[in-house]
Design a protein around this nucleic acid. Sequence first.
DNA 1: CTTTATACTTGTCATGTGACAAAAAATATT
DNA 2: AATATTTTTTGTCACATGACAAGTATAAAG
Lengths: 204, 204
Amino acid sequence: MTSARRPQKRALETRNALVDTAIATFSTRGFEGISIRQLEEQAGVKRGLVAYHFGDKDQLWREAADRLFEELAEDFLARLDALAEVAPEEAMRGIVRAFVRFSAARPELNRLMMQESVAESWRVAYIVDEKIRPLIDTLYEMMPQAALLLWGDRDPHRYYLFIGAGAFVFSAAQECRQLFGVDPRSEDFVEHHVDMVINLIGRR
Amino acid sequence: MTSARRPQKRALETRNALVDTAIATFSTRGFEGISIRQLEEQAGVKRGLVAYHFGDKDQLWREAADRLFEELAEDFLARLDALAEVAPEEAMRGIVRAFVRFSAARPELNRLMMQESVAESWRVAYIVDEKIRPLIDTLYEMMPQAALLLWGDRDPHRYYLFIGAGAFVFSAAQECRQLFGVDPRSEDFVEHHVDMVINLIGRR
DNA sequence: CTTTATACTTGTCATGTGACAAAAAATATT
DNA sequence: AATATTTTTTGTCACATGACAAGTATAAAG
């Protein structure tokens, strides 16, 4: 019979540091934009620890994606509970608000998707099949009327209008700073953007 | 006194093949997503020709970006001429239409920007300073009233709402196929999307 | 305290990378 | 046709990369 010892604290710290760095760098530089060694150095751990904890680069990427989507799910489900009692129209606006705010607070998720959404790879399939579709299904189950108001019957046009209008600025933060000299992550900017998106999408 | 011979046809073909492949691969896989050697192989030319024609990888990237933005400028200026006589409201809708259609026809440009817009690099600076800002300036000069209707006084919110809503689907084509089983490049999809964006943005 | 599993450290390998350089071939100009 | 120039073809370099493996240190469990 084999083992069953609980993981050591330092191991969890190492894993965390690596996943944190993976989220930051994969989302901005793409999967091939950073090497395992650079990643380890940036995370402040020794050379071989990615191999030890994750086996290979692919698995590290998966766990980074996992964590980002866990955060999104938590953030959403918490807010959706609060919207359970309100009228569909207002609930729909609540979803928009929640999404825009999350996109501003954690642009890494949409950045990761932007990096991957353009080309065919196991990573797009993984994100879509394991993360996005289930999340959309959950939304339609929990708040069918609000979801219907927002996206109709899973209309791709309305879906991407929503994502593009609501999240793109925050993903393109660097370009926005370069082009307009404005930081889209400032609170003012975010709330103003929320209002504009709701004004755009939330009236039918 | 040195030379002045006109370039040979095969050289132009080589350069073209390389720039074509550069556009296709840099936009989908990012700058570091493909090596010079892979690129040459995919372009069907011999190893070493990137070095000869472009010096280094950076310069090849620049020329790929140059060509994409030349196409955009041509496409736009041609259509803007046709809008010179119409009322500002209608001209503004014409700009939207032109932009969405171009984004669908040549998603590579927005993909390239998506790839680069997230992190700080010489490439974002190059695109913004050399390409985007001048293009925006031209637009405001040629059609001040329509531009004002579209983006106000260079309002970043309205700018990115426009870009995100109008172009994001086409950049994320792979994700869209995986998620909805729909190809956003089909003519039906494009025209429907044009209508929706105009309906969203074109009414104030 | 001893044992044993877990975690870290370091060495190594085959392969890929961007860049340059020199030789060969093809083409334009006279 | 002769020659000068452009273009292509190969060879080579130093270094980065992902993966694995063998050794060492640390911490948990008895």
